[in-house]
């Protein structure tokens, strides 16, 4: 029995802010993701009790740059790829 059903997929799609209104698409995704998650359960048979999680490949810590002011992007450059701009600001639909 898979832990993923259509409701899980819709819930996760909402968290990821991806519209999921088409029932058929949601069902297809449910089936595909179930197969993948079921396969991932292969890991259940491994004894991992003494292993530390490895979040990164290299042991680098505190990589800091010199505290010197650099040349940032101009406002114009930073906004050049935006589709909707007004008075030098990003324009978005109403929030509530």
């Amino acid at each position: 029995m898979s832990e993923i059903n259509v409701d899980t997929v819709k819930h996760v799609a909402n968290l990821a802010r991806i519209e999921m209104q088409d029932e058929k698409a949601a069902e297809a995704l449910t089936e595909e993701l179930s197969k993948i998650v079921d396969y991932a359960h292969l890991l259940d048979e491994v004894d991992l009790s003494s292993a530390e999680p490895m979040f990164h490949a290299l042991d680098l810590t505190n990589i800091l740059r010199e505290d010197v002011a650099g040349e940032p992007l101009s406002q114009e450059e930073a906004m050049r790829n935006a589709k909707s701009v007004e008075d030098g600001q990003f324009k978005v639909p109403k929030m509530l």
Partner: peptide, 14 residues
């Protein structure tokens, strides 16, 4: 269940 266990497997492989 999934994420941390996957990262642990990673250190075993290493």
């Amino acid at each position: 269940q999934h994420y941390i266990r996957a990262q642990k497997l990673r250190s075993i492989i290493e």
